[in-house]
């Protein structure tokens, strides 16, 4: 595994994340289930990529591979040109189920990564404070997760991921369980944060609007086998305001992604990278 590192480093020096010919199979009772097949994907530094696709197309599996929680059956997952071999603090993960430690306060949750990383107490406090303020939870710093609403929990999870200063954020349907209002608010906050603290983001969602609104690029996946079906470049300007959301360009992109998600022809790839709409 480590032997390939040197040769690949030069090839993919430009991409922050590089997925090369990844295939992932799960052994079911008496057959092999192909969760991912021939997945190739490069994500540039500071790029915001969203991934949409029908349920079961392998979005979470792809993310888990990049997070280092699962290994590809074949192919390579590279981060900064290095083969992924387990989780690392340079990759922050935000889970759909929040995954806050219920016995720790918001502050302690945010400090968790710093604590296990051996950051001294004072520095830990200060960093946690900063990110708690960033997500607007300063009034709840000493509250337990059970006292927070879903949106607040997710904000806490985002602060926790940011606190260890990862250069990559992997987000698996982070807003999936939230109501539409909270969702739009958090989308705007997330973009604001991303504008201030640039990171490479891979954001999984079910929601076509969300995918287009957030991304530089939307990856549409298909199931059986899980694969990349189409890539849609989103050349809309940041900051993405409500005007952007209501613009005809947005509508056009949205329709294209919608079509790619809901009118997939089985077994084929649309594959082509769509050109950007007129600016």
């Amino acid at each position: 595994m480590t032997m390939t590192t040197n040769t690949t480093t030069t090839n993919t020096a430009t991409a922050k994340i590089s997925v090369q010919g990844v295939r992932k199979t799960f052994q079911l009772k008496n057959e092999e289930f192909v969760a991912l097949d021939h997945v190739d994907l490069d994500i540039a530094d500071n790029e915001f990529v969203t991934v949409v696709g029908p349920s079961g197309c392998g979005k979470s599996t792809l993310m888990n591979i990049l997070a280092g929680l699962e290994e590809p059956s074949s192919g390579h997952a590279l981060v900064d040109g290095e083969e992924v071999s387990g989780p690392g603090p340079e990759r922050g993960v935000i889970f759909q189920q929040y995954a806050l430690f219920p016995w720790l306060t918001v502050r302690k949750n945010v400090e968790f990564g710093l604590k296990v990383g051996g950051v001294p107490k004072a520095a830990r406090r200060e960093r946690a404070e900063y990110f708690i303020r960033m997500v607007g939870l300063e009034q709840f710093a000493d509250a337990l997760p059970k006292m927070l609403s879903g949106g607040m929990k997710q904000r806490c999870a985002i602060a926790r991921a940011y606190a260890v200063n990862p250069s990559i954020l992997l987000m698996d349907e982070p807003f999936g369980a939230l109501d539409a209002l909270t969702r739009v608010k958090l989308q705007e906050q997330l973009l604001e944060t991303w504008n201030r603290e640039k990171r490479t983001v891979m954001f999984i969602t079910h929601d076509v609007d969300e995918a287009v609104f957030l991304a530089n690029r939307v990856i549409v996946m298909a199931a059986r086998p899980g694969r990349i079906y189409e890539t849609v470049e989103v050349d809309l300007p940041y900051p993405r305001t409500e005007d952007v959301r209501l613009s005809p360009e947005f509508g056009e992109l949205r329709n294209r992604v919608w079509h790619a998600v809901y009118h997939q022809e089985p077994g084929t790839n649309a594959g082509t990278t769509s050109s950007s709409p007129t600016a």
Binding site: A67, G68, P87, P89, F101, F112, G113, V116, V164
Partner: peptide, 8 residues
């Protein structure tokens, strides 16, 4: 998993 990805 959350703890692992935070570096634990």
């Amino acid at each position: 998993n959350a703890a692992r990805v935070l570096g634990a």
